[in-house]
C-alpha cells in the first residue's frame, strides 16, 4: 500500500473512531438518558399542573396529549436505566437507595404508571373528577424524589 493511501486510512480511522465512540457512549449512557426522560416529564407537568390548579383554561386535548407522553416515559425501559446504574460519582442525583430498595422503587414507578392510566380515563369527566388523581400523581413525583434523589436546594 502506498504511503499516501496508508496515511489516508489512518486519517479516516482517526476521524471515525472518536465519532463512533461518542455516538456509542451517548446511546449507552443511562444517566444521560434518564435525566433526559425526567426533564421531558417535567416539561409536560409544567404544562398540565396549572390547568389542574385552575390557573390555565381546561384543555382536554392538551391534557390527554401530555399524559400520553408521561405514560410513554414511565415504562420498564425507564426502570432499566436505573437498575445497576447508580454511581455516586456519575454526576446525577440518583441515590444508592434505588438499588438497596429496588422493590420500593419499582413499586412506586408502577404505581405512577397506574395513576397516569387512571388520570387519562378521568380527564374527559372534567377537573372535579380528575383533580384528586392528579394530586396523587404529583405526590408520586415528590415521594420518589424524597426517597431516591439526593437533596440539594430544591426549596
Amino acid at each position: 500500500m502506498s504511503a499516501m493511501l496508508k496515511g489516508l486510512v489512518i486519517a479516516i480511522s482517526l476521524l471515525v473512531f472518536p465519532i463512533t465512540y461518542a455516538a456509542a457512549s451517548h446511546v449507552d449512557d443511562p444517566v444521560e438518558d434518564r435525566q433526559a426522560v425526567m426533564k421531558h416529564m417535567g416539561t409536560e407537568m409544567k404544562i398540565i399542573t396549572p390547568i389542574f390548579a385552575g390557573k390555565a383554561e381546561w384543555d382536554e386535548a392538551q391534557l390527554l396529549s401530555s399524559i400520553a407522553i408521561l405514560q410513554e416515559n414511565v415504562t420498564p425501559e425507564l426502570l432499566q436505566l436505573y437498575q445497576s446504574h447508580i454511581d455516586p460519582e456519575d454526576g446525577s442525583r440518583a441515590k444508592k437507595t434505588i438499588e438497596t430498595s429496588w422493590d420500593d422503587f419499582e413499586t412506586r414507578m408502577n404505581k405512577l404508571s397506574l395513576q397516569l392510566g387512571r388520570l387519562m380515563g378521568e380527564i374527559p369527566q372534567g377537573n372535579a373528577t380528575a383533580l384528586a388523581t392528579f394530586k396523587l400523581v404529583a405526590q408520586s413525583c415528590s415521594g420518589c424524589h424524597k426517597f431516591f434523589r439526593n437533596r440539594i436546594n430544591d426549596r
Binding site: 409544567k46 399542573t49 394530586k135 405526590q139 413525583c141 424524589h145 424524597k146
Partner: peptide
C-alpha cells in the same frame, strides 16, 4: 399546592 417548582420539577427532601 402541588409540590411543583417553576421548571416542572417536583420537590423531594
Amino acid at each position: 399546592g402541588y409540590g411543583m417548582l417553576p421548571n416542572g420539577d417536583f420537590v423531594g427532601s
